[in-house]
Nucleic acid binder design. Sequence first.
DNA 1: TTGTGATCATCT
DNA 2: AGATGATCACAA
Length: 232
Amino acid sequence: MQAVRWASPPQTERELLSRAEALAGQNLTALARSCDTQAPPDLRRHKGWVGSLMEALLGASAGSKADADFPQLGVELKTLPVDGRGVPCESTFVTSIPLLEIGDVEFEQSRVVRKLSRVLWVPVQGERSIPLATRVVGAPLLWSPSAEQLQALRDDWEELCLYIARGEVEAITGHLGKYLQVRPKAAHGGVRRVAHDADGARLLANPKGFYLRTRFTAEILREHYHLPGRRP
DNA sequence: TTGTGATCATCT
DNA sequence: AGATGATCACAA
């Protein structure tokens, strides 16, 4: 197994996809080795390890913030932990939320749209019963949202942003949103961020991020890999 | 300290 | 079991 790790960024989507396809079927021990590293015993203290490994393998620009993982292609990379049925094990973090400005932004210009316009999904075995070292990478999928999916995201986004724009950020819970939800996103519960309340006064709130529910990512995988639906 | 990479831990 | 709220590591 060679030519799995790339130091330079891919020049085309086709090249990116080819690189990702070369990872399919390999386990994390082999892939870590080609990056001169080792898989940690588990992900408890290394939650982003698989994602970072994929970035390194595919030649993503290292640590560029607020930009796509592959800037010249406008492609975002997302690993997706899946179970034996091909159903995602976890929700997918999309982006953090600028609480003070989000009310002045249109959906089309939003971080959510920028991040999700073009995504390379890389499924990886994610069940905790499988030792991290032996988990296998699946076939990648280069994806853009359909018109229907984009509209569904917009509906959720606008509903959720209304809370923030109204200064009701503390009223938002993970229960809101059919496909897109807002949840805390911080190093720990004590982190505060400036926001505003219903009167426009400043207040400190827990940082938030947008996440895709598994029902959304599950649909993406079902469509593409022709996976069976829910068992009767 | 903030944003990106996410999964953990616990409750329902 | 599934989902929500909380949390961990690292780079810039």
